[in-house]
Design a protein around this nucleic acid. Structure first.
Lengths: 316, 316
DNA sequence: ATATAATATCGCATTGAGTTATGAAGATTG
DNA sequence: CAATCTTCATAACTCAATGCGATATTATAT
């Protein structure tokens, strides 16, 4: 014999409010309705829930005990409603975010930290990958959103791409690098230094090739390759190596890992860091919340970068 | 928007069992039924509870969270069912028991202790009173059962009386009382000792009068009156006083407060200790349980008393 | 006693849960 | 890769429960 949980909740309210009529009011139901519900419950369990012949309805021992349990149910139910509301508003949930390693570590990670400190109930599951991996993740539902640099032409047909930052690359080195003391840097200067290369299968590696080709340096010496942003930064600050990094990464991490940007114009890849999502798949509200947040943060970052650049120009 | 607690319970079972079909099995419902319930819940909250296009139905983050809450509800509901079952079997609840002071303290209290040690969830609310008080208590619902010595003629019309023990009274005193050393006690012997009398409004007081009158002692000296059994026993063991007590009381408390019974035949009141209940009023199951218990305990007590008496006769 | 407030009951409409039968789609296997 | 198996969704229908207003009944208060 299963008891109807709804009945127990009603009982709890009646007992709490001290009367059937007030209980009905509280529940937003009519008095006859709850009266009948209680009559039905009493009939089901075969025991009286209220003292007979008492006008402001008073519960029996059993009624009071069941009311306590009903209250537990009510609390759980309320929690459930709250949870649903928070999920709908994107304030709770889990978000599986995939991203290209360098940008994710250098730019997105700090934004994620900020997002989590605001929306503590959103759990972000971060993973790394390049276009093909991320695209597959989105397709099979393993990822909610992907963050990577992309050229408009590369966007898969059934996906949406929302640009966040321009994909400008720069040549960078440690701040006290010999080259930073040279006014006008030319090809001959940088030819003497070894290069750090990102993993060979990464777009950034191709950027590096392209950038160096654009300034005329066809073959270059690589003394370190692969690894994550953290290892690249370590090697960079501990040696005279050079490398190509997105300017936003250099800028975003300038407080913890300061790096110098060489005033050498290199070919821009025509890509933008942005958010890739599946068009049809309805995103969880937390995803929308996160996307909106990333847009705002990116705009702020872009503004700060622009501002810093103006200051530099004025100084020079 | 109120969530149906039933739905959350169903969700919890589905998630726990790892599939809709198995969940339906567990719940004893058909598979389409729970399927539709979940569809309805999803429609209500406007969010998916299960990952789309997964055949062994897997919950989303929201679904899993709601399932946890559903489980809490299930537990509370199960507790409720259990509670009801225990109440129905008389293994839980509250019992308001009224009784005449001497019998209650001397005979019933130890039985109540034993009863409570067996049925720990039954809470007994004990109170004292004589016939009129107890009768009123039963009538207005303030008492579930009353325990008192009664003559069959005194039983109110709409009440039932269940005899437990014969109401035989005896003259008693402390075990090392001078009178215990006298073989054949006569009236002249006891005339020298003062009497302890129960409260003047108690039936036992009238018993005392009647008993003494029956053995020819019209007026008697009372050096202590009123008080509870405990105080009577204290005075009795600390002085040479005599008093009249039910034999069952003397017998039941013989281990803790040993008293001597004088071999004087006195007039029996034609009453029996028994249980008085209202006929129409449906008793809580715990009451029935308690009554049955008292009957069994009383039978055992009676048997022991009979046995003790036989031994005494053989010895004398 | 009479008035008042609280609860129970009645009649009727609507909703939701239950069923079986059946269709659709992911998962599995030769 | 097609066939098959599982698993879930849908359809059509019945019935129990809930909703309501109107009204009877019954403690409690004045």
């Amino acid at each position: 014999m299963k008891i109807d949980s709804e009945h127990l909740e009603i009982l709890a309210v009646i007992v709490e409010k001290g009367g059937l009529t007030e209980g009905a009011d509280e529940l937003g139901k009519s008095q006859p309705s709850v009266s009948r519900s209680m009559a039905l419950l009493e009939k089901r369990i075969g025991m009286p829930l209220f003292e007979p012949g008492r006008r402001p309805l008073r519960p029996t021992e059993l009624g009071a005990s069941l009311a306590r349990l009903g209250n537990r149910i009510r609390i759980a139910n309320k929690d459930a409603s709250l949870l649903v509301r928070r999920f709908r508003q994107g304030l709770a949930g889990r978000l599986r975010v995939g991203g290209s390693p360098i940008f994710t570590d250098g730019v997105i990670a700090t934004m994620i930290a900020e997002f989590q400190s605001r929306n503590s109930d959103v759990h972000i599951d971060q993973s790394y990958g390049y276009l093909d991996t991320l695209e597959a993740g989105l397709k099979n539902g393993g990822l909610d959103i992907a963050i990577l640099p992309l050229h408009p032409r590369q966007v898969p047909p059934d996906m949406d791409f929302l640009p966040l930052l321009s994909g400008r690359n720069v040549i960078t080195c440690r701040v006290d690098h010999p080259l930073t003391r040279i006014k006008a840097i030319s090809l001959s200067h940088i030819a003497n230094y070894p290069w750090i290369a990102p993993p060979a299968d990464s777009p950034l590696y191709r950027d590096l090739e392209r950038a160096l080709k654009s300034i005329g340096q066809e073959d270059f010496m690589v003394n370190f390759s692969g690894g994550t942003l953290a290892s690249i930064q370590s090697v960079l600050t501990g040696s005279d190596s050079l490398t190509v990094l997105p300017y936003s990464v250099v800028f975003q991490t300038r407080r913890t890992i300061p790096l110098a940007v060489l005033p050498l114009k290199i070919d821009h890849p025509d890509r933008q860091l942005g958010i890739l999502t599946k068009s049809d798949r309805q995103r969880p509200p937390a995803a929308q919340q996160f996307i909106t947040f990333l847009q705002a943060e990116s705009e702020r970052l872009q503004a700060r970068m622009d501002h810093a650049e103006q200051v530099t120009h004025r100084r020079s």
